[in-house]
Write a protein that binds this DNA or RNA. Structure first.
Length: 274
DNA sequence: AAACAAGCCAACCGCCGAAGG
DNA sequence: ACCTTCGGCGGTTGGCTTGTT
């Protein structure tokens, strides 16, 4: 298949860092008109850029939806644990971290987390021990064994589901299993180390993306981004708009089966898939 | 203070799959 | 069935910043 010409082959298109003036133009255009067609957007917005460049700039930097700044400990744990399951699927990982972009997570992994894992004697690709230190090995092996056991159980449960078995389904099951087995609080597979992000908010974000443009435009115009987030969170809590159509929704559903003590009712949650 | 190294991250590149003609 | 267009993804680069000698 022939690929379309990349930006550099189109004479007159600008490359490199965006200027404040370009940002202003892009924000103004997207706010007013949305971004249904990135290809034609630069011309209409008066930008000497290719559509891809505009899209990247908006998604990774200009959108008011994204969260910037340091990653929290919980976010780091989420990245590490999900990466152990699915590898460099940055967009999938980003979907589990509300308001973080895949590019940001990828950068954070490459510049920060990867080095930390290596320093801990863990191979960042295989997530297995690389150190000769016996104690470190034993701890890491123990954790890997715990993970493997959880994974196998999750896969076994997934295989009995009507839905297609894939990484997200397995991961959803792992959530439930680990949250139900609070055995070792110092283990990376225990509830205390497992990501405690607000799953409702995560799903809120996923659902949000479809109606994002109007939301963003409203936020920019009214300078009430936080108010909108709160409003939407409340709507989600009130139970609007969920049906079990994809694996992300399943994760949300699992959250709904947390009992009064904060533990999961596995029988009820897995009944969802039967 | 200058030179160099390392860290960081925005942005680019090439590829892929979906959709539509 | 084939081709083109487009959005999206992951890998990589290059330039700016910060730290070290």
């Amino acid at each position: 298949m022939r690929t379309r010409p990349c930006c550099r082959s189109v004479i007159g298109l600008k490359k490199g860092p965006w200027t404040p003036n370009e940002d202003k133009k892009l924000i103004a255009y997207v706010t007013q008109n949305g971004h249904e067609n990135w290809h034609s957007l630069p011309t209409r917005a008066g930008l000497q850029r290719c559509g891809k460049s505009c899209r990247l700039r908006w998604i990774n930097y200009l959108s008011p939806y994204i969260k910037r700044g340091n990653f929290s400990l919980e976010e780091d744990q989420t990245i590490i644990q999900v990466h152990a399951l699915i590898g460099n699927k940055w967009s999938t990982i980003a979907a589990l971290l509300p308001r973080r972009t895949d590019n940001e997570i990828k950068n954070h992994w490459n510049t920060n987390i990867k080095k930390r894992l290596i320093n801990m004697g863990i191979d960042p690709i295989t997530h297995k021990p690389i150190s000769n230190n016996k104690d470190k090995d034993n701890i890491a092996i123990k954790h890997m064994t715990q993970w493997e056991n959880v994974r196998l159980e999750a896969e076994a449960r997934s295989s009995s589901m009507l839905i297609t078995t894939n990484n997200n389904a397995v991961y959803s099951n792992m959530c439930a299993i680990m949250l139900a087995n609070e055995d070792d609080p110092f283990s990376p597979t225990s509830i205390s180390s497992f990501p405690s992000w607000d799953l409702l908010t995560a799903a809120n974000d996923l659902n949000f993306r479809e109606g994002l443009l109007s939301f963003e435009a409203d936020s920019i115009n009214n300078n009430n981004y936080n108010n909108n987030m709160e409003t939407n969170d409340q709507e989600i809590r009130n139970g609007y708009g969920f049906n079990l159509q994809d694996d992300d929704d399943i994760m949300v559903a699992l959250e709904a089966f947390r009992d009064g003590n904060g533990k999961y009712n596995l029988d009820a949650s897995f009944a969802l898939f039967e």
